[in-house]
Simulated scan of single mutants.
Amino acid sequence: MAKKKRRTRRPPLNELHYAAIDLLSDVPTRNHEDISHILGISRMTLYRWRQRDDFDRELGKAITRKVRAKHPHRKLRWELNTPAQVERFFIASGWLT
């Protein structure tokens, strides 16, 4: 009889994750190398975090909060659910080139 694979649970996001989210959601954003150096982690760790669904969700929320804080009277007509959508939003708004 084959053994069942145990699925390991991923630990929840911690302060270091949220610090990375804060740095990634700044406009204009720094590159991954600068952010990883500031946080004292490797660039590959930051890339792996970007692939996590929970990290991606929190990053989208942080970007949405910062956009709304900058333009409180404007209604957002954009769906900002994925990093690609957020990047398109910043390019269209002229904040990124």
Rank of each mutant, 00 (worst) to 15 (best):
V86Q: 03
R30I: 01
L59D: 01
R9V: 14
K70W: 05
R7A: 05
D34K: 15
T64K: 04
F89L: 04
W95Q: 14
W78L: 06
A19I: 03
T97K: 15
T97I: 06
D34T: 14
L39V: 05
A62G: 00
I91K: 11
R77Q: 09
D54I: 07
K61R: 10
M44H: 05
L23W: 10
S93L: 12
L16M: 04
T82I: 07
A20I: 00
I38Q: 10
A84S: 09
F55V: 04
L39P: 15
T8G: 08
W49K: 00
R74L: 07
H73W: 03
A92Q: 10
K4F: 11
E58Y: 03
G60F: 09
N81F: 06
L96N: 08
D53T: 14
T97V: 05
L96W: 15
V67A: 08
R52S: 01
E58K: 12
W78S: 11
D56I: 01
E15Y: 14
K4M: 15
S93G: 00
S93D: 15
D54M: 10
R77K: 11
R30L: 12
F90G: 01
I35M: 02
V67D: 12
A62T: 02
R57P: 04
L39A: 09
I63M: 02
G60S: 13
R65M: 03
A69L: 04
E15Q: 11
L39I: 09
S42E: 04
Y47M: 13
P12L: 09
W49N: 09
K66F: 01
V27L: 05
R43Q: 13
P83T: 04
P83E: 14
P11N: 13
R48W: 09
W78F: 14
D53A: 09
R50I: 03
K3M: 03
I41R: 15
L23Y: 07
L96P: 06
G40V: 06
E15C: 05
N31K: 07
H32L: 13
D54K: 01
P28A: 09
L80Y: 11
D22W: 07
K3F: 07
K61A: 06
P12W: 00
Y47Q: 12
Q51W: 08
L39C: 00
R52L: 13
T8P: 00
R52Y: 11
K5I: 14
P12G: 05
D22G: 08
I91M: 08
K70T: 05
N14E: 13
S25A: 15
E15N: 08
N14M: 03
V86W: 12
R6G: 08
P72C: 00
E58I: 10
N81S: 06
P83M: 13
V67L: 07
K5L: 13
T29H: 10
T64H: 12
K4Q: 14
I21E: 02
E87C: 09
S42V: 05
A2N: 09
A2Q: 01
R30K: 14
F89K: 00
M1T: 12
Y47E: 10
L24Q: 07
Y18G: 08
K70C: 00
R6P: 00
F55K: 06
W78E: 15
W78R: 13
R68E: 00
P12V: 06
H32F: 13
V27W: 06
R65F: 06
R9D: 09
D26F: 00
T29K: 12
L13A: 09
